[in-house]
Design a protein around this nucleic acid. Sequence first.
DNA 1: TTATAAATTGTAACCGCTTACAATTGTCTT
DNA 2: AAGACAATTGTAAGCGGTTACAATTTATAA
Lengths: 342, 342
Amino acid sequence: MPVTIYDIAREARVSIATVSRVLNNSSAVSEKTRLRVKKVMEQLNYTPNVIASALTKKSTLTLGLLIPDIANPFFAELARGVEDASSDFGFNIIMCNTDYSSDKEATYISLLKQKSIDGFIISSAYYNDQNVIELLKANVPLVLLGRDIDDSEGLPVDVVVSNNVKGGYIAAKYLIDLGHENIACLLGPPRIKVNLEREKGYLKAMEEAGLKVCPEAVGYGDFKIDFGFKKTLEILKGPCKSTAIFAANDLTAIGAMRAIKFLGLQVPNDISVVGYDNTMLAEMVDPPLTTVNQQMRKMGYIATELLIKRIKGERGVGEKIVLDTELVIRKSASKCKNVDIL
Amino acid sequence: MPVTIYDIAREARVSIATVSRVLNNSSAVSEKTRLRVKKVMEQLNYTPNVIASALTKKSTLTLGLLIPDIANPFFAELARGVEDASSDFGFNIIMCNTDYSSDKEATYISLLKQKSIDGFIISSAYYNDQNVIELLKANVPLVLLGRDIDDSEGLPVDVVVSNNVKGGYIAAKYLIDLGHENIACLLGPPRIKVNLEREKGYLKAMEEAGLKVCPEAVGYGDFKIDFGFKKTLEILKGPCKSTAIFAANDLTAIGAMRAIKFLGLQVPNDISVVGYDNTMLAEMVDPPLTTVNQQMRKMGYIATELLIKRIKGERGVGEKIVLDTELVIRKSASKCKNVDIL
DNA sequence: TTATAAATTGTAACCGCTTACAATTGTCTT
DNA sequence: AAGACAATTGTAAGCGGTTACAATTTATAA
């Protein structure tokens, strides 16, 4: 029913090969016939069938985006950046929510491969993600977004992340400069590499300041509000006398703030809190959350751009781009009042 | 390079037609050969090429999702429901952000048509969306999600929305029952039908209670924080003496709360606020926002299910599903203190 | 046992486009 | 004006499946 290349060929009195040539603006077409063909395409309101061309060209102008959960504002921001770039370059995005499950991830990957997508943007990679390793081995174009893997078995990967070590460092440093000495640290799952890095930054700041970290005040969890809430209760009731909490994402920080309030204490007067990500939630909560900013949308955009350029053959593989992080100071952290030593 | 139907045929010593038959589990294959073919498919780790089959079957098992902005938690929730359903039924979702632009919407639509997607889920439809009308005329499978259109020129459409009139009504009624008489109303763009409906509910409640609405206290805007902030300042400085504000979405409500605080007043002691949507933001803000709950994820899920069943030919077109709305009472609204009359 | 219907399988055209290669046309030299 | 070469266009074989129709095999009935 729809207009095909044959219809155009017939009307323009040329072969379908020629029509195909003007479609792909190949040089080997005289200006005269090119114009004639284009005119017919206009008249008949022709749009080429991407599926048909994909069958031979292999390219579908479609990318797969794997994220844990689009309902999480962090990933929604990443996704927006990804979609913006795709749209700018004429690509489309198939969105997949893996729910932090390696199995779901694998299922999506095989499904998308069947659909001949041109590449993957993966933001759900674990510390050592077998799915990713396999894709790399199969030489499937892919970029890791926001999350690095630890071992790519020597295979080149493109990675776009932000400076997590710095992020952890400046968060802790800020609290230290405010006079805090007992600073708790709530991290996400250790199998996600960013947590190790943020912890590293935190530890570095502590060490530089000659402060010891209380073991019970550092814990891994799952990046959710509830974990922040429970772990904070635990810490504040424990032996560590923490006066400040650094949480490795905003949701956990929000959970921590709730726990503090739940105990009848105040943020930041009694306990200071610093979060991570700077999602829109940070400015919504009370008090507004001081947090480490990640340029999420930009990360998504750059990663996608990188991938598309690689697909087009405009560049090689194996780049690692680290975007800067910085502290956004709001109201959830203040000077330490219980400085024992002074 | 990848395994094709020919490889399977050769190994299983059958024709490609037979392989295709077991692929589509057509009945006309003997159990014996079916098993043999399946075994070979396993051994060779074969996955059929969706693109190739799409060329003849026309179906790509892919749906297009048009939303204004995935970074908006409301749409993120819808999208999550959509993706969940797609995944459950073996479909994938191409996500498009239209940024409230009819042109962008049209561009995406034509792009997705070229990619032979099986149907559209449209959540960006305006009061009278020409893009949608055209799709309907072309008989493209489509479902409207969260937003109805006003005139489909008699063409049947599937629509999944929530009960906006009721939502507006219960929000206003709640405030009225708390003793408020001067209730402002901040609405989104009038070209989005839900706003007219929510307003209708609000007006109905006011009328039932014998209250008059102050014209300056009702205004259309753009569903964003900033609008809520500015309009609220305007209203509170104006002649209407509003003691409560009903905002047609959570973001606007949050803007309103900020304006109230900005003026040195308290929520809810001085001014009560009720929002709409019950996004995750509602429980984050201070005070937690009393708001009308929409079952966003469920809406997305149901809409997608409807669309897929239609595509599969399991049902006709022209259904309108209205999900219930209810008030979620938190802390942003309280009894009216300035009741003049008493 | 044989004719006939039913079940199974194979052949080949087609989906709409790309592209290697061949054929044709045009341009430039001498 | 003929030959050599470049530019343009056409032919036809895929890409990996689906499916109408024909061919073959098997089951059933007389």
